[in-house]
Every structure is written in C-alpha cells, then in structure tokens.
Simulated assay, not measured.
Amino acid sequence: MGQWKQQAKKIKRDVYALYFAYRDQRVPWYAKVFIACVVAYAFSPIDLVPDFIPVLGYLDDLVLIPLGVALALKMIPAPVMEESRDKAERLLKEKPKNWVAGAIILLIWVSLLALILAWVTKFAKFA
C-alpha cells in the first residue's frame, strides 16, 4: 500500500510539473497541446467514466492519467522537466490555500441547501 501512495504522490507532482512545463517556451507546440489535455483531465472534476460506476469509475483515473503523464513526459526536454519538477515540489511543500475559492464553494452549497429546504417546506404545506 505504501508503494501505491508513493506512485500517487509522484503522479500528482508530475501533473503539477506538466503544468509548469506547458508554460515553458522550450516545449514544442504539439507537446503543449497534449500536456494541456492531460492536465485539464487530471484536474477536472468530470471524468470520462463517472466514479460512482463500480470498478470502471476509478479505472480511468488509474489508467488514463498515468498513461497520459508518461506520454507527456517523453515529449518534454529533460532540462525543462527537471526545472518543472523542482517548481512542483516547492508548490506542493507550500500547500497553498485559496480561502476565497473555498468560501465561494461553501456559499454555493449553503445557498443550494437553503433553496432545497425552502422548496421542501413550501411543497410540504400543499401536501
């Protein structure tokens, strides 16, 4: 189980590193297009196969993301990837927190809950 956690951390670091590599001018355009797709899919909450589908839901995360990362790494010059991994390591150690984004998401959920409760209480009066 420990080895799986290490692999997951390595892939997470490499996804962040791919983001930094994408912004580097030394990376060819075709690699940037592929990197953009891999990073967008990795960070996206929407999957090709929804996670609630047994086995297949997580299979895309376990196969597609590592495969995409591995292919993208082959397209990037070694010095660029080394610099990008260093940047990713620093970013992950800092553990940035975006309180504004968290507050907005919390506000959305509370608002949705309030709307649902208002609708349920209004509907309950007619029943």
Rank of each mutant, 00 (worst) to 15 (best):
G2A: 09
Q3E: 14
W4H: 02
K5N: 05
K5P: 01
Q6M: 11
Q6W: 06
Q7T: 03
Q7F: 09
A8D: 00
A8W: 01
K9S: 13
D14Q: 13
V15Q: 08
A17E: 07
F20P: 05
R23A: 13
D24H: 09
Q25I: 10
R26C: 03
V27M: 06
P28A: 08
P28L: 01
W29M: 07
A31F: 03
A31Q: 05
K32D: 11
K32I: 06
V33Q: 09
F34W: 13
F34I: 07
V38W: 13
V38G: 07
V39N: 06
A40G: 14
Y41T: 13
S44I: 12
S44F: 08
P45K: 03
I46C: 02
D47T: 10
V49P: 03
V49K: 00
D51T: 07
F52V: 03
F52H: 08
P54V: 02
V55W: 13
V55I: 15
L56K: 08
G57E: 13
Y58V: 01
Y58F: 07
Y58W: 10
L62S: 03
V63T: 10
P66H: 15
P66T: 12
G68H: 13
G68L: 12
V69C: 12
A70M: 12
L73H: 02
P79Y: 01
M81K: 07
E82L: 14
E83N: 08
R85Q: 15
R85M: 08
K87M: 14
L92H: 02
L92N: 00
E94D: 04
E94W: 03
V100P: 02
V100E: 11
A101C: 00
G102S: 10
A103C: 11
A103N: 09
I105L: 13
I105M: 14
W109C: 14
S111V: 11
S111P: 00
L113I: 06
A114T: 09
V120D: 00
T121W: 04
T121V: 04
K122V: 07
K122D: 13
F126Y: 10
F126N: 06
A127M: 10
